[in-house]
Computed example of a mutant assay.
Amino acid sequence: MGATIVGLDAQLKRWRGQLDEVEALMPLALKRLQRTFKHLPIPEAAPALERHLARWALDLGLQPAEAADVLAAARPGTLACYVAPGAPEHVRGLIGMYTALVVTVDDGVIEQGVPVARFARSAIRLLRRGGKLPADTPAHRGLADLRARVISAGAAGLLDELADQLALQFQAFAREQRWLNHGDLPSLSEYLPNRGCTMAVHSLMLLHRALPGLLRPGTRFSPALDNIARSTCSVVGLQNDICGILSDIKHHNPLNVTTVIARECDVSLPEAFHRALPLLANRWHAALRAADDYCAAPGRTPQEAAQARAIVAYAHGLCAWHITAPRFDFA
């Protein structure tokens, strides 16, 4: 994301000087991630889905030919296969399409031609209500096509929830920009819940519910399930930060759990990186305990238990994606 970093330039310069030490720690970090989360082989269905998504994105203008490498590096089809291994092709397709859409918009591959806040309002309205495109941009066309596919899959009841999650994601982006505009980083207690919202993972979990056997579309998560989902999203955000720290600092993005710890605790970037690893593990084990307690509660239905298990499985699938996607720079 583009960032205004007035007041953080000097700190970023110091952190860039410490990147070699962080890079030396990366093999250890990746081993710890692989011990904490399940090892998953690259799904056999992934290459075919990647080709399908690339054609879809190209046809809609989401992926200009000159920027094809950006979407290819993100591997949205592989991500969909990792997080929904037993889902039918059309469900994995919905997850992959939403991922491709978020990647191309968030990475600036496509230019919307309107301010972000205005685009957010129109995108949320389009998801919720459908109708005429508010603007003929690739992202609006992509959202309209995705909406039609959700309805065709018999999951129209998800659209309001999907719009709500998109609104929360844009609010989290705006919160990040305010922090940067003020030239300072948030506290860790502010950063962690916001980080979970900046990822599109909660929306992917919703689209997964087009799969029979999970909570029916139109049935909103209970507070307990919502807490498990948000905790898992926060864990995935920390995975993203740990795998992305080298790229973040190289590209002048100071928002990362490692930098937040370094600033708050007044420690070096390598020391902060060390501290981020047990933080991730502890939050993951807390999410697992919450899911186990939820499934063991008296009167729990098979659909509710399956939903909780599907939610926490996202952390395993997305860890595998983080480690294998070319998008991430480990050196």
Rank of each mutant, 00 (worst) to 15 (best):
A3S: 12
T4R: 15
L8S: 09
W15S: 13
W15I: 07
R16G: 14
D20V: 07
E21T: 05
E23R: 15
L33R: 02
T36K: 05
T36Y: 04
A46D: 00
E50R: 13
H52L: 09
W56E: 01
L60E: 02
G61S: 11
Q63G: 10
P64W: 01
E66R: 12
A68Q: 11
A68E: 03
D69V: 11
L71A: 12
A72S: 11
A72K: 12
A80M: 03
C81F: 01
V83A: 04
V83P: 11
A84I: 00
P88T: 06
P88N: 08
R92T: 00
G93D: 09
G93C: 07
G93R: 14
I95R: 06
I95T: 04
V102R: 14
V103C: 12
T104V: 14
T104W: 03
V109P: 10
I110V: 15
F119S: 06
A120P: 09
S122D: 15
A123P: 09
L126T: 07
R129C: 11
G130M: 08
G130R: 13
G131Q: 07
D136R: 14
T137D: 10
P138D: 05
P138G: 09
A139N: 06
A139T: 10
G142P: 12
L143K: 10
L143W: 03
D145Q: 11
R147F: 12
A148L: 13
I151C: 14
A156I: 01
D160S: 12
D160G: 15
A163S: 06
Q165P: 06
A167V: 02
F170E: 08
F170S: 06
A172T: 08
A174I: 01
H182Q: 15
G183C: 08
G183V: 06
L185R: 13
P186V: 02
L188F: 14
L188M: 12
S189Q: 15
P193H: 08
G196I: 05
M199C: 11
V201I: 15
S203F: 04
S203M: 13
L207W: 03
L207Q: 03
H208A: 10
L215P: 11
R216G: 04
G218N: 10
T219Y: 06
L225Y: 13
N227P: 04
S231V: 02
S231Q: 15
Q239T: 04
I242C: 07
L246E: 07
D248P: 05
D248N: 09
K250W: 00
N253G: 10
L255R: 13
L255M: 15
V257K: 10
V260P: 10
I261R: 08
A262R: 12
R263Q: 14
E271L: 13
A272N: 05
H274V: 00
L277R: 15
P278E: 00
P278I: 00
L279S: 02
L279I: 00
L279C: 08
W284V: 01
A286P: 05
L288A: 07
L288V: 13
Y294H: 14
G299D: 05
T301P: 13
P302Q: 07
Q303W: 03
A310W: 06
I311F: 04
H316S: 02
H316T: 02
L318C: 01
A320K: 05
H322M: 04
I323E: 09
I323W: 09
